[in-house]
Design a protein around this nucleic acid. Structure first.
Lengths: 274, 274
DNA sequence: ATAATAGTGTCTATCAGACATTATCTG
DNA sequence: CAGATAATGTCTGATAGACACTATTAT
């Protein structure tokens, strides 16, 4: 079996030796990364963006990303980029979707594998290399619009959203179509990546415990509930939430004042693995 | 804003004109496609495989796939491949995951975007071009093993499965690790693609109605239930299933004998869009 | 008639939605 | 003490699991 030969009478060893990848056009492949965290009182999602220091989209804000290299997985490339950008390790990181629309990058053919990272604390960040600047943006996501704000820099990026339905086999799906309404915009097709990431996070958070990646190692239930409410974009009933979450957490025995709002002290919890 | 210049004093137009993608190594990118259907009585999933006619993995069975070209999305490449292979159009097709492990193809650097297709009828197929042969395989998937059978050709491909848990941020995930136990194997890392696809299908089928892509346009509830049971790998209670599905289907008014098992005639239903 | 399957009724446990009530903390 | 928030109790409605029973067809 090892010595099997192909139509040209070559063994595998011989075949690989003479194999010429040829002149097929090949794309560059990058790993772009959506880094999400929560603000101080868990009332808003934050997205890390870099300001582009070169064409194309010079001066626009973009997702951090970098080339995937031959001796690494795309996941590793994303991880490297995340660590360079935030200095953080051991962070939640998951593949979202791969974007390959022609001309999505005006320079050359680029396919992007998009990743989602969830950080428990907003890291200090500053621009480097190809970036003029780097900053956390407040992210608001509703059925009607996506909005990104950075007050310090007085930047606002706003897209209206329209729902479009399309058929896939027997099934009908709904898609969000963004249209820019602000002066500033996100570079490339990054707004589409953002939409996919939020959709996926909202679908998964109830099953996959991603909320625990957005809080400290110990937390209060009001804090955890605030994370769910902010991610899902709707309020939850306190009692139902606590019933739902009860067997995924355990008390540490300590008390703690919530980062959310002041009042009575809270019991402190940690994530219970099982 | 249009006339903004970068550090080298170039406008965007000038920059793009002089831009040189350079000698960065670039991967080939392929779209591999997992084509799933059901057997005659909905008791088993079927997977379409092609037998490789050249090195590497000469004589092994593999997922169909093809190169993504510069003027198309990966989705379109997958669709083209699906139509070439089965002659079918209007089929459910969705991106699963992108695989980029170094050396996953011994010829050259290849990154694969994996797609899942669900066909309502098993198309007639035959090998072409680079494939010696092309056939539907019975697919069995349990917590312990993945098994692929084609009786006509007397081929069996079996992998034992082991669960491994790993951490991603604060969360612990479980993964299936396959180990080959049969003589025959799937080419490349295609068994890993298969595992991801089945996992995703099982997670989604309750919410995303993919089952309707695996039956005819009209169907009986015993047939539909058989699809769910086969995909999920466990029996469902008849009454619970019918309650669960009732507002997603509507009666056509006709009667029909199920493809599953004989007995009393069934009411015929169709998918109700909403 | 009998075996086999289709289709429905009903009980239970669980859980989300919805409010109400009690407990504890800060100022 | 007043205001605010934490924590828990309880009712309702929807739904999955479990089982039983009736209806209709093929042989």
């Amino acid at each position: 079996m090892k010595k099997a030969v192909n139509k040209d009478g070559l063994t595998e060893e011989e075949f690989l030796k003479q194999y010429d990848p040829g002149d097929y056009n090949r794309p560059s492949v990058t790993a772009d990364i959506l880094i999400l965290g929560m603000n101080e009182d868990y009332s808003s999602l934050k997205l890390l963006l870099i300001k582009r220091g070169n064409h194309p989209f010079l001066g626009s804000w973009a997702l951090p990303g970098g080339f995937v290299e031959e001796n690494e997985t795309a996941h590793k490339a994303a991880k490297r980029e995340l660590e360079e950008e935030t200095g953080l390790t051991g962070i939640y990181l998951d593949q979202i979707y791969t974007f390959s629309k022609p001309k999505r990058d005006p320079r050359t053919w680029v396919i992007t594998i998009a990743y989602l990272a969830l950080v428990p604390n907003l890291a200090e960040v500053e621009g480097r290399d190809d970036a003029d600047d780097c900053a956390w943006f407040d992210l608001k996501f509703t059925d009607k619009a996506i909005e990104l704000y950075n007050e310090e820099r007085d930047v606002q990026i706003v897209y209206d959203l329209r729902k479009e339905s399309f058929k896939n086999g027997a099934i009908r799906y709904e898609n969000y179509i963004p249209s820019l309404v602000s002066e500033e915009r996100l570079a490339f097709d990054h707004v589409e990546i953002l939409i996919e990431a939020i959709k996926k996070l909202r679908e998964q958070i109830n099953y996959n415990n991603q909320a625990f990646c957005l809080v400290d190692e110990t937390f209060t239930l009001p804090e955890l509930q605030a994370v769910y409410e902010t991610v899902l974009g709707r309020p939850l009933y306190k009692k139902s939430f606590r019933d739902m979450i009860s067997d995924r957490v355990e008390e540490t025995g300590n008390d703690k004042t919530s980062k959310t709002k002041s009042g009575r002290k809270c019991k402190e919890y940690r994530f219970k693995e099982e």
